[in-house]
Design a protein around this nucleic acid. Structure first.
Lengths: 257, 257
DNA sequence: ATTTCATTGTGTTGAAAATACACACTATGT
DNA sequence: ACATAGTGTGTATTTTCAACACAATGAAAT
C-alpha cells in the first residue's frame, strides 16, 4: 500500500532528523469577529481532533522549531508565540485510554505504538489574525480548521487540558504585558483593540475606562487620520509606538487585568 | 582507571533507563535567617559550578522525576516545586563556549561530547527550608553547597540565566498565589511569614499593611497561643487553614505584589 | 518594684487607582 | 432636517494602597 510505505518512510525521517522523546504542541488562537477560536486537526479517516504539533530538529533551537511548526500550519510568520508549559505525564490520555487512542488513529499497530510512544511535550500558544491564516493539514491529518473556543469537542491525548492552561496563561499575560502588535492591522481604532482584549478575556469592558488605561500605558500613538466608511462618527486611528511597546514588553509594567 | 570505567558504566545506564534528549534543571532556593540562597554543585576537580539537574526515566512522569532529583540533592520531600520554563537553545553556553565548557569538565573528550550533547531541559524551581536540607553531590560533582543569591559566580551553561528567570517567576507567583505552607513551621508568627515574603521579594514591607493584607486573604487562622521566650511582647501564633489555602492555590486569587 | 526598651496589636488618614456614570459630538441613512 | 448609533471627553464615587501614630506587652536593666 502506497500510503503505508510513505508513512514508514516519514517515521524513518523523523528518527534521523529530529530529537527523540521531545515534541511540541501548539494552541493557536485566532481572533475574528469578536470570537476566539482555536485551530484543530482531524486525523485521516477518523472523527478525532487534536492540536497541531511538531518536532525539533537536531541543531534547531526549540523556539525556532515552534515557529516553523506554526508556519507550516498557518502560513504565518512573525507572530505572537509564547511557551506556557511542558507536559510530561506518561499517560497523557484524558479523554481516551491509550488503547482507544491508538485504535482511533486508524494506523497499523506497530506504527501507532511508535507514534504514541511517550514524549515530553512543550506547549506553546500563539495569537494570529484569523483572516490571514491558511489552515493546512499535515501528513497524518486531512482537515485543519478553526473551532469556537467554547465548542471544542473532546480531543485526543490531554489536548483539552492544554487549551485550558494555554488560555489561562494568555489571560494572565494580558495583565502584565501589552498584546496586539501582530494581531491588529498597522492602524487600528480604539474599539478594535478593545474588542481584542474583550475577546481574549471573555468579558466586556467599559469603553471609556479602557481607553483611559490603554492611553496611560503610553504605547499608542494617535494619528490625525480617522477611520472612514463606518455608519457613525469616525473614530481616530492609532498605531503602536514600536519602541515604547518593546520597552513595555521588556519591563513588564502592569497592564489591564 | 577505575573512575573512567564507572563513568562509562553510568553513561550506559543513562542510555538504557532514561529518556534521551530531555533533562531537567533545578533552581533550589533556600530560605534562612533573612537570606535567600541557591544550591549549586561543583564539578570534580574543577572550580566550576552549576545547577543540579536530573533525567527522566522511561515511564516516569516529568514532575515525579523533578521531585526525585530534588530529593536526591537535598533529602527533602513534599516541598514547593514549580516548573517555570523549558530551555531549548542549541548553544546554551552563555558564560563559556562549548569547547571551554567541555574542557572545564575535565572528562575524556568522547565522554564530554556525550554529556554536553544538546538537550531540551525543563527548569523547575523549589523553595526549601535551608536548615532541613542535606546538600548532597552526585557522581559528577564533589561539592554541593548554598550560595547567597547575590554572590553567584559565573556558572556553566546558561545556568545564570536560569536562576534569574526562576527568581523572576517565583516573585511573580507570589503575587497571585500563597506561599509558605511547607516553608514555615506548623505554627508561626506574623513577623515570621513577613520575613519569608521580604526575603523572596528582596525588599522590606510595612509590618502593619502586610498583616492587614495577609489576614484579608483569609487563609490564616489565629491561635490563642502566643510565642513565648522572645525578649519583647509575645506575638500571636498563626496556622494555615489548609482547606482555604488549597482553595486559594486553585483559584489563584490576587496576592501581595 | 519600677523603669526601660524593642517589638507587637490596632487603628486613622490621605493619596492614588479603579469603577461607574453623563453629556456633547459626528457621520450616515431616512 | 432629523434620528440613530457609535465616538470623544469629562466628572463623581468607590475601592484600594501606602504612610504613619500610638497604646500595649513582656523581658531585661536598674
Amino acid at each position: 500500500m502506497e500510503y503505508q510505505k510513505a508513512l514508514r518512510q516519514l517515521i524513518e525521517e523523523f528518527k534521523t532528523n529530529f530529537m527523540p522523546s521531545v515534541s511540541l504542541d501548539l494552541a493557536i488562537f485566532g481572533f475574528h469577529d469578536g470570537q476566539l477560536k482555536v485551530l484543530l486537526l482531524r486525523w485521516k479517516g477518523t472523527d478525532d481532533w487534536c492540536l497541531p504539533g511538531g518536532r525539533i530538529r537536531h541543531e534547531e533551537n526549540l523556539e525556532v522549531a515552534a515557529y516553523r511548526s506554526l508556519q507550516q500550519r498557518t502560513g504565518l510568520r512573525e507572530i505572537f508565540l509564547q511557551q506556557f508549559h511542558t507536559f510530561g505525564d506518561v499517560m497523557r490520555y484524558t479523554n481516551f485510554s491509550k488503547q482507544e487512542t491508538m485504535a482511533k488513529l486508524g494506523l497499523p499497530e506497530d506504527i501507532t505504538e511508535e507514534l504514541v510512544s511517550r514524549d515530553v511535550s512543550v506547549g506553546y500558544y500563539a495569537l494570529v489574525e484569523f483572516a490571514n491564516a491558511v489552515p493546512t493539514p499535515d501528513f497524518f491529518t486531512e482537515e485543519c480548521r478553526w473551532w469556537d473556543i467554547d465548542q471544542i469537542p473532546p480531543l485526543l491525548f490531554d489536548h483539552n487540558d492544554m487549551i485550558k492552561l494555554a488560555l489561562k496563561t494568555l489571560r494572565r499575560q494580558l495583565s502584565y504585558q501589552p498584546i496586539g502588535y501582530n494581531l491588529l492591522p498597522d492602524k487600528f481604532t480604539m474599539p478594535d483593540i478593545q474588542q481584542l482584549y474583550e475577546t481574549i478575556l471573555g468579558q466586556t469592558l467599559d469603553r471609556r475606562n479602557f481607553q483611559k488605561r490603554m492611553l496611560g500605558y503610553n504605547i499608542l500613538e494617535r494619528l490625525e487620520e480617522r477611520k472612514t466608511g463606518g455608519a457613525h462618527k469616525a473614530p481616530y486611528l492609532y498605531r503602536f509606538d514600536k519602541e515604547k511597546y518593546e520597552k513595555a514588553l521588556a519591563e513588564e509594567i502592569l497592564f489591564v487585568g
